[in-house]
Structure formats: C-alpha cells, structure tokens
Nucleic acid binder design. Structure first.
Lengths: 213, 213, 213, 213
DNA sequence: TATGAATGAGAATTCATTCAT
DNA sequence: CATGAATGAATTCTCATTCAT
C-alpha cells in the first residue's frame, strides 16, 4: 500500500474515498484469488481481472503480488482475530479461553469458506499471539501437561490449518470445529471438567465482518 | 539375425540405463529444489542447473514442473513409508504402531532435513494409508476415544506437517519427534500405559535410503 | 459523472486508435514477410522486426502466426476484390466481366509486386466469389462451353496464381495480364468477338489502396 | 544423399542393400509427410516417426529436410515422367502428345492420391521439359495460337497444379483429368479435330510404380 | 487516480544435431 | 549402419512494469 498523504483537505477526500474503495475491491478480489490458487501461482492479471480494474490501477495501490498478499493477509485476519479476542475478554480460564477461541475461529471458517481456504493456504503463521498466549498461561498454571511446548504449538496450529482446509472445501459437518477444539484440549491433557466447560459455553456473538462477495 | 537382435537389445538396454540414471539425477535435484523453494516458485532452469543437465534433457523425461513434482513426491515418500511399514510388521497394538510409526517418521526427518522440508512443503497427502489405518483400527478396538475421526486425522496430519517443517529447519531437539508422538496419542486419549509402552519401545532399524547429496 | 464517463471514453478511444494503428503496422509488415518467405517459414521475430514493435506487442494483437496470416489475407485481398467488383459494377456480359476482372486483377499485381507475391504464395483461395460467379453466369447463358465447371475453375485459378508469381518476380511484360486474360477466355471457348471486346475495353479506374511501403 | 562408395566389394553388398532399403523407407515416408503437411512445416521427427527409424538414422542418409525434399521430389517424379515420356514415344502430333501427356499425368494422380498431393504442394516446377517442349513444337508448327508463350505455360502448369490438388483430395470424378486436358488444348486454340483425336486416343499402358503404402 | 497499449526480460518449449554404444 | 539419449541454440510465449492520455 502506498503511503497515504498525511494532509487530507476537503478537496482530496472524495478522491481518497474512491481510492479506498478501489483498494478494497482489489483486496477482496485477491482474497478469492489467493484462496483458489495459493500464494505463488497467481499473476497480476488474475487480480486485475477478478477486481475488474485496469492493469495500471494495480500499481497505483500495490507494488507487487507479495505486497498484496501481505495486505490481504493483514486485512483479512486482523479483524477476525481482534473480534475473537474481544469476545473472550472476560474469560479467565486458559482452558476455556483456548477452547472457546478455537471454536470461534472455526465458526468463522464455517461462515466464510473463501476466507477459510485463504487462511489454510496462505497463512504464514502470524497474528497468533492469542492461542499461543493462552497455551503458555495454561502451561504455567499447570492446567496443561505436555512433553514440549513447541510440539504442542505445532500440533495446534497444524491441526487448525488442516481443519480450515477441510471446512473450506465444505466437507466438514457443523460440529467439526467443536470436535477439533476438544481434540486439541485433550492433546494438552486439560482437565476433563474444564474441557466440558469450554465446549458447553455458549459462543459469544462475534460481529460479522464485511462478507466476501 | 540373433546377433542383430542381441545387438539391438544391448543398445536399448544401455540407453535405458543411461536414461534411468539421468532421471534419477533430475529427481534428486528436484527434491532439493522443491524443499528450498516450494512447489510453485521454481522454474525449469532451477532443476536443470541443480541436476547439471541440459534444458532439453529435462523435456526428455518430464513434460512439466507439475509432472516432476509428482514423480519426486512418489519416488521420495514411497520408499520411506514402505520401509517404516516393514519395520513395524510385527507390532500388533494400534497405539504402539501409531506411536512407533510417528517416531520412525520423525526420526527419518531428523536424518534427512532436505527430505523433511520437501515433505513439509509439498506433500499433498498421499501414501498415508499407514497411520490412517492404525487410527481406524484403534478406534474400532476402543483404544482411542475421539469426538470425530476426520478431526483426529486432520490433527495428526497437520501436526506432523508442522513438525516436519520445524525439524527441517533444524530447530527441533532430538526428542522432538517423540514429544510429538506422545502428544498425538494423548489427543486420541490412548491409554496411558500404552503410550508409555509406545515411547519406551526401542526403534527398529530402518534401512537408510540413498541419501540426498 | 458525465465528465468521468467522457474521460473514460476518451481514454478508451485513444487506446483503440493506437491499437488499430499498431495492428495495421504489423499486418503491413506481415504482408512483406509472407510475400518473401511464404506462409510457413517465417518466425514471429521476423514480423516483430519488420514491424518495429516489441515481441510482446505481437501477442497483444495476434495469438499465432496462423492468425496473423488469416488477418493479413483478409485485410489484403478484401479491399482489392471489393474495388474491382465496384469498378465493374455496370458491365453486363459475363465474358467481358471475367476478362476485365482478370485484367484489373493483374494490373493490381503489376502495381504492387509485394501484394502479388503474397497472394501467389499464400492465397488459400477465399474471396473468389467474383470470377466464379461470372463463370457460372457465362455457363448458364451459354457464353462459355467447357467440359466441366470444376476443371474450368481450377484452370482459371491455377493460371492466375502462376501469373501472380511471375508478375511478382518482375518477369512479366506489361501486357502479360492481358495475355493471361485472353488465354482464360479462350479456354472457356468464349465467342471471339466478345473476347476482343473484353480486351479492347479500357480499364476503369481502380482507386489505389494504401501502398505497401 | 550421402555419396555412395564407388568401390563395392562383396562384403559391403549386404550393408548397401540394407542401407538402400532404409533410404527407401525414409523417402516413402517423406512422400506421405510432405503430402500432408507441405514442404516447410514438417520437422525431422515427423519423418523419423513415419519411417519408423531412429533419429540418428536420418542423418546417416540425409543432411537436412531440404535435401530429403529434393531426393523425394526427384525419386517421385522422375519415374512417372520418364514412364509417361516412354509411353508416348511414337506419337508425333504435338497436340496429341500434349493432350495424351496431360491425361496420363492426371491418370497417375488418380491412381495415387498421396503422390498427387505431394506434387500439388511441393512441386517447385522441375522436370517439366516434356509438356513445355510439346508446347513449343506446337507453337512453332502453328498448331497452337496463343498471345504469349509464358502465359500459356503458366496457365497449363497452374491449372495442372490445381487439378492435382483436387484429385488428391479425392474430389474429382474419373473424367476430371480428360476435362482438364481438353480445357488446356482449348486455351491453346488447338484444332478441334486434333483435340478430339487427343481425347479419343486410348491411353497407353504406363507401368505402375511401387505404390505408396 | 484510472486506463490499457506497449514493452522486453525471462521462462517455457521445440527441434536440429551430435555421439557413445 | 542403426540407435536414441543428451545437448543447447532458436523459438514461442508469459507477465511484471512503464507511461502517455
């Protein structure tokens, strides 16, 4: 994204809005394109065609596919993770936090398969402070007992990625996310009653993001 | 006449041998290239340079990068999985089989980081009948208790892939594979004594494959 | 809004004009290249160099040499044949029409040897409704007496192609076209007086096409 | 064709026969390939595949496609034209000679469509001394009256080429060759009785050449 | 800022030719 | 002589990037 001018006077506001709209169109299109074809295969023309803009317009907003990928990644996951974090603001127990967080995450995936495929394929693991933090708190408090924290982290993230792939393909039943969350907590040897509590907790509302068209 | 046919056969045989050797060189080089750069980024010149053959030679053996990827995948994983299966031929318990199988798999990864990175990045999941079969036997026998078999499968495979990535980067301690195996069995709620047995079992020898140069 | 649309239209129009001009340059160059080297031998670089455009520009306008050949063929012969047809609009007698048409055709060849060689070498026979139509009218009216109309057609077209080749090589005297026309009418056993009339008729003006540079 | 050794002792005879056979196979295959694809489009692999020989074998006999084309041309047309000339040895009248020669030529085309297509597409006009000679004798004797001898020559040869194309496509009735011959003589304003004689003359037997398989 | 034609570097692909067996 | 794998120059084709409007 090219640096926005600091000074925004009245004259430029309209132009900026149009620009923001164009940028949004490109990113939304990119989400779909990356979801279908992965991070490396697409060429600029794919985005240009999907967004319905001219080729030169692309370069008015992004310098390369790489940059577009970053922008799309950030724009796409930041909102979701922020909203999930917010929704869990008042939960204390790391077991419940981790369980509910995973369930919310997969619920989001069920709502938006394109987003799901995008994250499954593109995610270079970033913005994952949330579950990792809960994992570490849980370990410190002795709620989880695992042979190694890196291994635990890899199992959770790897499992989540595969789950997203399956959900994105539409081959997962509605309960799939809860099953996955339960498995994850089992892997961490969480207390059985806490697991049940995490699964029983009714999911807080997460405000829907602007949907992928 | 007989002499003539023998001569033809001889020429043909020599040609075949040379061809097979060249193909092997290309595939071995491809393993390294795919491991470093993933399945989409490399261009034909990368393989050609890595294998030390002429550009035209590539096309004498493979029609596209895609086809080379398949060939490399098959050639690379088949041997390993076959040898692991063989080495566990006399183990009965699905818990122990799954645990030992995973440990052998990660041990192979530790021995050959290039192979590890290749599988982590490229694996489109194939030739995984082995762990999946053990998982299903264990479920049928009641040795594992999971909320859903697809979820269990995804957790195992996803975790294994992340583990391979870490091992391939050289960022995993020697015990990492065993930790991962233990976590996987925990996730399946295997019996604690069986888990201990699976981890205590000394690993059978796996004949080393021709190493990546 | 109106201004914006006008602006878009303006950009589009300018782009179209530039594109059409480039396409014209390529086709004119292709005429020369095909004329010298035939339909199969030339490579894309030949056209690119002759037209003075970039290699990529070629592909912005044509998908292959084949397509360029079609485009060049159509563009090249359509104009000439249309103008000849127009110039003969008021001639009735099929004998005179055929004779004058052939004479005009060869006159065009004499004026433009490049065009002549192109048509001689490349012509896959198309846009020949004109002489064929006159031939059939003449046969129906009994002005021509031939043992078979396909044979007559082949003789005329084959003879014309050879004539173009010779004219294109610059090895034909100015009267060559008239001689050929006379021979053709003789072959059809046209009435002698009509032949004389066809040859005596002063050729109508044919507006010159944009010349090959 | 590479130069044959002058000295042929007993030891080499077998080898030479085999070589001659191989060369023949290649040429016969080339006839078909050139007939289908013209003189410029085919690549060496086409001949190699059609002849069922190895790639290197091609270079043992021919240095290039160009040379193969010449060899095929010569081998193909020489026999035919020689046999036609021979069959007409005792005909005196140039009109009858030309008429019968053309009829024999087209009869050969009807017998061998592959040969026909080859000659139609590839013929760079050579070995045509026969009809040209008859044409000139006829002109000298006043049997033909044409406005120009080059034009007459072009009409005859061009018509013959188109006729071969049509015959080669299998779209000509059996009488097509006779019709064409008649048209040609009409074009030359031959005497009507001589034309009738040329067409009435029963065609002498022409020994069949080794057929294209 | 949006447009899209033109550009040319680079990647993919073909194919004539060589050469060890 | 026959074979066919290997070669690399020539060719085709793609695509990121520029720029005038």
């Amino acid at each position: 994204m090219k640096a926005a001018r600091a000074k925004v006077d009245h004259r430029t506001r309209v132009g900026r809005q149009r620009s923001a709209r164009t940028e949004g169109r490109i990113i939304e299109a990119a989400l779909r394109v990356f979801a279908e074809r992965g991070p490396d295969a697409p060429v600029i023309d794919d985005f240009v065609r999907a967004a319905g803009v001219a080729r030169g317009t692309f370069y008015n907003h992004f310098e390369s596919v790489e940059e577009l990928l970053h922008a799309t990644s950030a724009w796409t996951t930041r909102h979701v993770l922020e909203r999930i974090a917010q929704a869990m603001d008042d939960i204390e127990s790391p077991t419940v936090r981790l369980g509910v967080g995973l369930r919310l995450f997969f619920a989001q995936a069920q709502r938006d398969p394109v987003w799901s495929r995008f994250v499954a394929r593109v995610w270079k693991v970033g913005g994952l402070e949330l579950p990792v933090h809960d994992l570490e708190v849980g370990l410190r408090l002795g709620h989880f007992r695992v042979p190694g924290r890196d291994a635990a982290r890899d199992l959770l993230l790897g499992g989540a990625r595969e789950a997203l792939r399956r959900i994105g393909e539409g081959q997962a039943p509605p309960s799939f996310g809860d099953q996955m969350a339960e498995l994850c907590l089992q892997a961490l040897r969480a207390d059985q009653r806490r697991i049940v509590a995490a699964l029983a907790q009714s999911l807080p509302d997460v405000p829907e993001r602007t949907r992928t068209r």
